[in-house]
Computed example of a mutant assay.
Amino acid sequence: MKKPQWLDRLENRWQVNTVRAILILVVFACTGFTVFFLKAPILNLIVPESERTWVFTLTYYILIFPIYNIILLIYGFIFGQFQFFWAFEKRMFRRMTGRK
């Protein structure tokens, strides 16, 4: 069976083999689901749903960013891809801060 073209592109972009590319995608998926499932219980402890405004939502997304990154590193460690995600985080923060 032939690999999908999108998987070849990811392998080339990330400089990894097929198994590692799939593991990396699994880490991203697990992190996203974890943040999704944690959102409602955490927010309900802080503010009732009826009292949430767009400002609160914006604040949530700003505050969840570091938590998402920590969870990403944890799952990266669990799936044996910590080095990839540590380098990924450093590149992302360099781009955000404009440092080279």
Rank of each mutant, 00 (worst) to 15 (best):
R52E: 07
V55I: 07
F33Q: 05
G32I: 09
F36Q: 06
R52A: 04
N12Y: 13
F93M: 14
N12F: 10
K100S: 09
F77P: 05
V27G: 00
V55H: 08
P48D: 14
M1H: 11
F28K: 12
K3N: 14
I46S: 09
N12I: 07
A21R: 05
W14Y: 12
F37M: 10
P4C: 15
D8N: 15
L63S: 07
F93T: 11
E49K: 12
A21L: 02
Q5C: 09
N12K: 15
A29V: 11
D8Q: 15
I22C: 06
E51W: 13
K39M: 03
L43G: 01
N69G: 06
V27I: 04
P48I: 08
F85P: 00
W6R: 15
V55Q: 13
Q81V: 01
K3A: 15
P66T: 01
G98W: 00
Y61A: 08
P41R: 10
G80V: 09
W6M: 15
P66S: 01
I46A: 13
F37H: 04
I70Y: 06
L23V: 04
T34R: 00
M1V: 12
A40N: 12
A21K: 01
F36M: 14
Q83W: 09
V35N: 07
I64W: 06
F82I: 01
R95K: 09
I70V: 03
I64F: 05
M1W: 07
R94M: 14
T59V: 05
F56A: 10
R52K: 06
N17I: 03
F65V: 02
P66M: 04
P66V: 01
T18L: 11
T57V: 08
M1I: 12
K3R: 15
